[in-house]
Amino acid sequence: MDREELLNATPEDSGVPQKQQSPLVSLEKDLEFYADAIKEVAIEIMVEGISAHPIFIAHQHEVSIGEIILNKEELNTDWTIQASTLEEFVEKGIINKEKYEPFLKVYKKPENFMCVFVIVPEGANFIYYPYKTKG
């Protein structure tokens, strides 16, 4: 049985295909849970002058960019979050130098949104997740 068949396997007895739950459902739950801590780190990155463009990496395996700030093993969650910066993404070649300016144009205000680079087995992509406004 290959990986694809395992992912789409359904219980034989029901005869009804089970809807595959997207890993993004658990990511959203974790981002909500982590939001205050992530915002704190984002502000720290900006205040300390490290970068005006913090990027957080959400993954379930191991990645070699950024520093772990929230470990899924320690926190009993589904996703580990690492903190990085736009500059590190360019330096490591994840964002091409030619894409730097276009990326800045779509980069949302880090005071209101966390920029998350989500890594899943199928690939990786940027999402912007809003911080909850208190009040």
Rank of each mutant, 00 (worst) to 15 (best):
T10H: 12
K108C: 04
A35P: 02
F33S: 09
V16T: 14
V16K: 14
L31K: 04
I50C: 01
E88L: 11
T80Q: 03
I94G: 02
E32F: 10
E87I: 06
A42H: 07
K108N: 10
F126Y: 12
V120R: 11
S26I: 01
F89T: 00
Q20R: 15
D36C: 00
F89E: 02
A52F: 08
A58T: 09
V120S: 01
E88C: 01
E87M: 02
E4Q: 12
K29A: 12
P121F: 09
S22T: 12
F33W: 14
I50A: 11
E28I: 12
V41G: 00
E44M: 09
P17D: 10
I119P: 01
M1K: 06
Y128A: 12
E111P: 00
L6F: 14
D30T: 04
E91M: 13
P110V: 06
S26N: 07
Y128M: 11
V47E: 15
D13A: 11
I57G: 06
L27W: 10
Y100D: 10
I45F: 01
A9F: 13
K108Y: 09
D36Y: 04
I95A: 03
F89A: 04
K134G: 00
L70E: 04
E44Q: 11
G93W: 04
E74I: 03
M46D: 01
A124C: 08
D30R: 05
A124S: 14
A35F: 01
I43Y: 01
P11G: 04
T80W: 02
G49A: 07
T77A: 09
F103N: 01
A42L: 03
S14Q: 13
C115E: 05
S84G: 10
V118T: 12
Y128W: 15
Q20T: 10
I127Y: 01
A124H: 11
A52Y: 11
Q82M: 09
D30L: 04
E5F: 10
V106H: 02
E40T: 11
G123R: 04
V116L: 11
E5H: 11
Q60G: 14
M46K: 13
I127A: 08
N96L: 13
S14H: 02
Y100S: 03
K29G: 02
L6V: 13
H61S: 14
I57Y: 05
K92S: 05
K134T: 12
D30S: 02
V116M: 05
N8S: 14
A52Q: 15
G135P: 00
K109H: 15
H53V: 02
K19H: 13
D30E: 03
V16L: 15
E44K: 13
Y131C: 05
E44A: 11
Y131F: 15
I127M: 13
I50P: 01
T85E: 05
S14V: 10
E67V: 15
P11I: 14
Y107R: 09
D30I: 07
S22E: 08
T133F: 06
K109E: 15
G135Y: 08
F89Q: 05
I95T: 04
G93R: 03
V63A: 06
N112S: 14
K132N: 10
P23C: 08
Q18A: 14
F126S: 06
S22Y: 03
V118L: 05
T80R: 02
L24Y: 12
E28F: 13
V116Q: 01
Q20V: 15
K39T: 00
A42S: 15
Y107W: 08
E111A: 14
K132P: 03
L6C: 07
L104N: 07
